[in-house]
Amino acid sequence: MSAGNTDPQAVSRSFRPAYRLCKTDEYSSVFAFRKAVRGRYFVLHYKPSEYACARLGVVVAKKLARRAVLRNLIKRMAREHFRHTREILPCHDMILRLNAPAKAVSKAELRGDLAGLFRRLPK
């Protein structure tokens, strides 16, 4: 963040390490909880968090998105949507996983599926 930027919204919408799932055990515990919301292209696995905020992890398999450019785009889109909706999301640990090939899918379709999953997440 630059020294001239003092907008409090910019600070609160960052994707800080506190909002990320990083460790293998964190991912394993979410997958073991076995609750998920399914969309056309994604599955959103979730479990109630011990922390006071929502946290996100993203999994994009090479099998479903062969090119690194596409995998990185999907991850960026997921993080961006999470950053903008984090304040209204319930306190869950979540893993967003690509579940269908995304080779010929438009960005608008992916964004729509992401938004639908986060809206259907139980409170």
Rank of each mutant, 00 (worst) to 15 (best):
K35I: 01
L64I: 01
A36Y: 04
L117S: 03
A52D: 15
G39F: 01
A65C: 02
S29W: 06
V11C: 04
A100R: 15
V59W: 07
A36V: 11
Q9W: 10
R38D: 04
Y19H: 11
K35H: 09
L89H: 00
L89P: 02
L56N: 10
R76E: 11
R83A: 03
Y51V: 09
E109N: 01
N5G: 05
D93E: 06
P90L: 07
H45I: 03
V11I: 14
R20W: 07
A61N: 08
Y51G: 12
S2P: 09
Y51W: 15
R16L: 11
E87R: 06
R97Y: 04
I74Y: 09
I74L: 15
F33H: 11
L64Q: 01
E87L: 07
C91T: 09
E50V: 11
K123M: 08
Y19V: 00
G116F: 07
V30S: 01
V59F: 08
L114N: 06
V37T: 03
L121M: 07
K107M: 11
N72D: 09
R38P: 00
V105G: 06
V59H: 09
G4Q: 15
I74P: 00
S29Y: 06
A18D: 12
A54C: 14
D93V: 04
L98A: 10
R34F: 03
V59S: 12
L89T: 01
A108W: 09
P122S: 02
L98N: 08
N99A: 15
S106P: 05
T6L: 14
A65W: 00
I74D: 07
P17Y: 05
V60S: 01
K35F: 02
E87N: 07
Q9H: 14
P90C: 09
H81E: 15
N99D: 15
R40D: 08
A78K: 00
L44W: 10
F33P: 00
A78T: 09
